[in-house]
Structures are given as structure tokens and as C-alpha cells.
């Protein structure tokens, strides 16, 4: 083995070992910091307590009244309702805004007006309008998710290769035909990009909405953990939110790959 190859193998090994070392150091110091009382138990739960809490919450409704799965199911239901409504309205709107001047002229000022308002800011109004049930949260998630959908679909249509459009026009395509057969397919990768961004936004706004107004869901779990002074419950809620978000994100990634198979990116 030449010297060069030897060095290379050595380096590769370091790159495999280092992440494991850093992760175990992270968890170990987290565990020890709490166990040795550097940080009081009332402020932070060690990872072991979180894992214990996780298994306990799968079968026990104490102390907040619902099982962990039930909380997760409530959150997922709300997030998906809002998410699909956002896709259903946002993507066609963005596509139309990118191509039709009428749609752009009518929708753009309102969109620009609503866009900079953080979705969380709608929470007080939605509590007035819909109470603290499902509808209000779906509305907040919807209004947060619609923004990336519109922006990406709009940008996708705008970035259509002008040569394709010229060619379509040369062959006598009508405006609608060009929109349907050229703009929409070429905007698809951007639209799929929006799916992930919108999902992340929806998931974040969901937690915000549930912190402020809810009687179930993962955000509610976090909030009740704080109110009861139970950091293990808070951390468990945060970890479950993160995990669920990652799983949904991966699922959408898979669907995206399936649907876009054969399309050049």
C-alpha cells in the first residue's frame, strides 16, 4: 500500500469515528451534567429520563390526560389538513400568478400585504373567529403554508425557459395551452421544493398554535410540561415533534422522487 493510499484510508476512518465520538460526548455530557447536579433536575431532564418518559407515555395518560400517540395524532391531523389546503390553494394561485396578468394583478397586492405578517400573529384573531378547536389551528397552518407554495409556484412559472415558450408560440399554441403544457411541467421541480418548505413552516406554526390555544397535541404536551414543571415532558414533546417532522419530511421526499422520476432536474 502506497503512502498516499494509507493516508487516505486513515482519513476515511477518522470521518466515520468523529461523528460517533461527538454524538456520544454530547449525550454523555447532557446526562452527566444533570446527574451530578450541575443543572438541577427541575430545569433539564437527562436523556435517560426522557427515554423512560417516552415509554411511560405510550401507555399512561398521566399527567396531561392523553397518550403520546393521541397527542401526535391530533398534531398530525391538524398539520395535514392545513398543509393540503395550503397546497390546494397556494400552488394553483402561484401558477396562475406567474402566467396570467389578471391573476397576478388581482392577487399580488393582497398576497404582499399578508406575506410579512408572521402566521403566529393570526392566533389571537383565530381564537376569536374559530375558538381553540381544530378550525383555528388549521387556519393558521394554512395561512403559513400558503406563502412558500405561492412564491415557489410563481417563481417556477417565471423561470420557464423562454425558448420553449417561443417554440410553443411558433406552433400556434394558445396562451392556455402554453400555460398547461409548458409552464406547469417546467415549474414542477420548484413546486416540489415548496412542498418541503411549506411542510417545515406548517409544522413550526402548528407548535406555536398549540402552545397558545389547544387542549391536545404535541405543542400542548410541551406547554403542559412547562406548567407542571416537568422538563422530561417538555423535552419529550420537543423530541417527538422533531422526529415526527423528520419522518413526514422523508415520506414527502420519497413521494417527490417517485413522481419526478424520469424528469431531469
Amino acid at each position: 500500500m502506497s503512502h498516499y493510499q494509507h493516508v487516505k484510508v486513515h482519513r476515511q476512518r477518522a470521518l466515520v469515528v468523529l461523528p460517533i465520538v461527538s454524538l456520544s460526548l454530547f449525550f454523555l455530557s447532557w446526562e452527566l451534567v444533570v446527574d451530578f447536579g450541575l443543572v438541577p433536575q427541575t430545569l433539564l431532564a437527562p436523556p435517560s429520563a426522557v427515554v423512560k418518559m417516552f415509554f411511560a407515555k405510550l401507555t399512561s395518560t398521566a399527567p396531561d390526560g392523553l397518550l403520546l400517540q393521541e397527542h401526535a395524532w391530533i398534531s398530525i391531523k391538524e398539520a395535514f389538513l392545513g398543509y393540503f389546503l395550503a397546497l390546494l390553494v397556494g400552488i394553483p394561485l402561484g401558477l396562475a400568478m406567474g402566467w396570467f396578468r389578471l391573476a397576478e394583478g388581482l392577487a399580488r397586492p393582497i398576497f404582499e400585504f399578508i406575506r410579512p405578517i408572521p402566521p403566529i400573529a393570526w392566533i389571537p384573531l383565530t381564537i376569536y373567529w374559530f375558538g381553540i378547536g381544530l378550525t383555528g389551528k388549521v387556519f393558521i397552518i394554512w395561512i403559513g403554508g400558503i406563502v412558500p407554495c405561492v412564491i415557489n409556484a410563481y417563481a417556477g412559472v417565471r423561470m420557464t425557459n423562454p425558448v420553449f415558450l417561443q417554440m410553443a408560440r411558433l406552433y400556434g399554441a394558445t396562451s392556455w395551452q402554453m400555460f398547461r403544457t409548458v409552464c406547469i411541467p417546467s415549474a414542477l421541480p420548484m413546486v416540489f421544493g415548496a412542498l418541503q418548505i411549506a411542510l417545515a413552516w406548517c409544522w413550526m406554526n402548528l407548535v406555536g398554535a398549540e402552545l397558545l390555544a389547544a387542549n391536545g397535541g404535541l405543542g400542548f404536551l410541551i406547554q403542559s410540561g412547562r406548567k407542571l414543571g416537568r422538563p422530561d415532558l417538555v423535552v419529550l414533546g420537543m423530541v417527538t415533534v422533531a422526529l415526527t417532522g423528520v419522518i413526514i419530511g422523508l415520506a414527502i421526499d420519497r413521494i417527490e422522487k417517485k413522481l419526478l422520476a424520469g424528469m431531469r432536474r
Binding site: 403566529i120 409544522w203 413550526m204 406554526n205 402548528l206 407548535v207 406555536g208 402552545l211 405543542g219 410541551i222 406547554q223 410540561g225 412547562r226 417538555v234 414533546g237 420537543m238 423530541v239 415533534v241 422533531a242 422526529l243 417532522g245 423528520v246 419530511g249
Partner: peptide, 9 residues
């Protein structure tokens, strides 16, 4: 993947 808002509590 943790939404920043979940750090509020």
C-alpha cells in the same frame, strides 16, 4: 428539525 417555537417552554 426542532421547530424553534418548541423551545419557548
Amino acid at each position: 428539525p426542532m421547530p424553534p417555537i418548541s423551545w419557548v417552554s
